[in-house]
Design a protein around this nucleic acid. Structure first.
Lengths: 249, 249
DNA sequence: GGTTCTTAGTGTTTAAATTACAGCATTTTA
DNA sequence: TAAAATGCTGTAATTTAAACACTAAGAACC
């Protein structure tokens, strides 16, 4: 925080970690900064919150301006406010993550088309982003990993009709793990949250898979009755072995 | 947001939901407001964040000024920023919860002694608090319920030496549930996170219980090896019955 | 000193959930 | 019609969770 700009005493912004899922890959939408500070680096989309604007509204606005999408999953995650996180003054930022269906929009619609890109999440986390956006991205990714295990939000990243294999790949990408196909299907189907629409994939060079839809009404119904969604990671064997050794001293 | 005070354009504050546990009861520390707005109502302790102060630092400061305690568990939960949440201007607030051992301090040390009180959490949630503090309290209580199930933070609310029954009562108070004594003890002890210090309660009018200490080093060791703490609520019978009916249509 | 009161402490059986694991089925393409 | 690719299915073994009731120890009272 230097004194360069006295007018700019303190402000708050929102930053949005927009996740998408494409071809087995978890992605995040980044913008290349055209101006200082951090010119040329990739950054999370965000903006200052207007004086008469609620925080969530600001987050939705950023998202809509960038993608044209209105009805998307959005969740506040954490607020970052280190004194020196913004080189031009005191700006705290409220971080959100949102989940969008990549197929729902073309980035070209945006005026910054050239400077907006989907990045693989792992690679984005390893590369240098503007401001403290590496920290924000990591925090939001962890939040997503956590959410996806206890709420059926993964569907927000898939097209309305999807196959069980696509759903499994989604979970595997987010949780960085491998899941057993049979057990996964058994578990998911036993929740009766998916509607079998009696349709099949088309144009695939192999046996086409059944398509399913997420049944949101059903979920809300079940949830109201105490049902709790939960997907676990696997790979417990090694962990347990190590643990057993440890306990045995 | 009215124009009464133009200087006060926008600011950010921290509010702290300070939980304590006493005699089987989960409590929250509230301050009675001495001045408008909301004069006479109970409110969460909080303060504006200084221009050169990090958010967490501000939260710790509020806590220390009020209780004299420095090393306490503190966690950011959510940021509240409705345009009209503060009648004097735009103030967004970052909410924290902290867990303190009530026995560690006397409120009398504080200058506002008379206006600071521990309130039963359930009652506080039902009563009218200043600003949007009902919402904040509820959000933080939910966050606590959640945290306590997946991280061993409950110990922060107990004295260093405690009995298994006290620990169970703590969980029952936070999760609003009843736990089976034998299953609870079996589960907790099987985690080998407690040190049996070979001491017993004194001055109780019945058979004295063994005292235990939480072994933090052990926990960190286990955690690093993939161990995951988890305490579940009980009462699944009714839920499952209802669920079964529902699935059967 | 013994009876009563109160909380501490302990194991087993049953049910449910999770895990591991492999081969046949269906479609497209060559 | 053979090969390639992915879809799809069930059972047995293990682990975890759930239900449940009596004896033990000390304090208080008579």
């Amino acid at each position: 925080m230097n004194g360069e700009n006295n007018f700019f005493k303190s402000a708050f912004s929102v930053d949005n970690v927009i996740f998408g899922f494409d071809d087995g890959d978890l992605k995040v939408l980044l913008i290349k900064r055209g101006a200082a500070p951090f010119q040329g680096l990739w950054a999370l989309p965000g903006d200052l919150v207007y004086p008469n604007e609620d925080l969530d509204t600001a987050a939705y606005r950023v998202l809509e301006e960038l993608t044209g999408l209105k009805k998307v999953y959005l969740e506040q995650v954490h607020t970052f406010g280190s004194v020196d996180r913004h080189p031009l003054g005191r700006v705290i930022t409220i971080a959100y993550f949102s989940l969008v269906k990549i197929s729902d929009f073309t980035l070209m619609a945006s005026s910054f088309a050239q400077n907006v890109e989907w990045h693989n999440v792992d690679e984005a986390m390893k590369s240098e982003l503007a401001f403290d956006h590496n920290t924000i991205l990591e925090t939001c990714f962890n939040a997503l990993m956590h959410r996806v295990r206890i709420r059926p939000v993964g569907f927000e990243l898939l097209p309305p009709k999807f196959t069980l294999t696509e759903l499994q790949h989604l979970y595997e990408a987010i949780l960085s793990t491998e899941l057993d196909k049979r057990n996964f299907r058994k578990k998911i189907l036993s929740m009766s949250l998916l509607t079998d629409i009696e349709e099949y994939q088309e144009g695939v060079p192999h046996r086409p898979a059944k398509l399913y839809q997420f049944n949101k009404e059903r979920y809300q119904q079940l949830e109201a009755h105490g049902f709790s969604f939960e997907v676990k990671e696997s790979k417990k064997k090694e962990k347990k072995k190590r643990l057993a050794e440890l306990i045995a001293q």
